[in-house]
Amino acid sequence: MGDEGRGTGACDRGVRVRELRALWGSRSRETVWDRTEDWWTPAVDAVCAAFATGADPADASGRLGAARARAGIGIGRSLADLAAFTEAVEWGDPPLRLVRAMAEGWAEGARAANTCQDALTGLATPAYLRTRLGELYPIGDDGPPTVDHRLIVVTLDPTLDPWRRAARLIVLGYELRRFFDRGESVCLLSRSRIAVIAQEAEDLDGRLSELRGGPGWEHGAGVWAVPLPPALREAMTLIDGLGRADG
């Protein structure tokens, strides 16, 4: 086959993968998924590509299970999402080999999640963000943070194509880790939002303006900040709401 034939074949596979992704995503949102923006992961396309080429998707199912665990998605919802895929491609119930591969991948990903680092972006995970917040409040949740901090939220457009949004998130995460170089915690909130816990300082407002006009503008990201709430429970409720807001 010539170069043109190979190019056409790759193009056809790409189209098929996108079609499967859309069909699966739609089915999953109808049955199990309640947060649109965090459904896609590169492992989703790996499963679709395996099916589109006639390969056994077991390995890709394992990768998907690991990705779900690292994102804090439970095994039950992960398996229900796999069932949405097999229904979308008219396989009915997931074959046992795919269930086993996903479960093993999920277990491995859950162990890796203890590192508190998101594998795709390199940012700290939402679980670490909660841990860090807990460190800022008195034991017993009976008072405001021991030192004044602000929660900075950097938001990408959740309607972007998943590939484009993931690419921007990776680059933006890298730039934010370089920008916030004074011990701030830079954490993932969702697949379209990054949170930063920054201590109050005289130049913080100026730095936020610099962020809006620099990396924020370059990546089409919104940047805003709020003081941390007066109690830990309220802070946890705030970040939970921010993480779900794009769903």
Rank of each mutant, 00 (worst) to 15 (best):
M102V: 06
T121V: 03
E184N: 12
Q199N: 11
A167M: 03
G14F: 09
W224D: 15
R178S: 15
P57S: 01
G206W: 11
C116V: 07
G247R: 08
C116N: 11
D142Q: 08
I194H: 05
C187I: 08
R70M: 08
P227D: 10
Y128T: 07
L188D: 09
E87N: 03
E19L: 05
R21C: 07
T53E: 02
L96W: 03
R18M: 09
P94E: 06
S28Y: 01
D38F: 00
E37D: 04
W217K: 02
L82D: 03
A49N: 00
I239K: 12
A225L: 09
D38P: 00
V17D: 12
C187N: 05
A221L: 10
A10T: 13
R150Y: 09
I194C: 06
G109N: 04
A84W: 10
T159L: 05
L133S: 13
P227W: 14
D203E: 06
R130C: 08
A245P: 08
E218T: 11
V44G: 00
G14M: 14
V47T: 15
R132I: 08
E202Y: 12
F179Y: 15
G25M: 02
W106M: 04
W217G: 00
A198N: 09
M102S: 11
G173C: 04
F179D: 15
G25C: 01
A245I: 11
V196K: 13
Y174M: 14
A198L: 12
G74R: 08
A225R: 11
T155D: 14
S28T: 01
A195V: 05
S28A: 02
R70V: 07
W163I: 03
C187V: 11
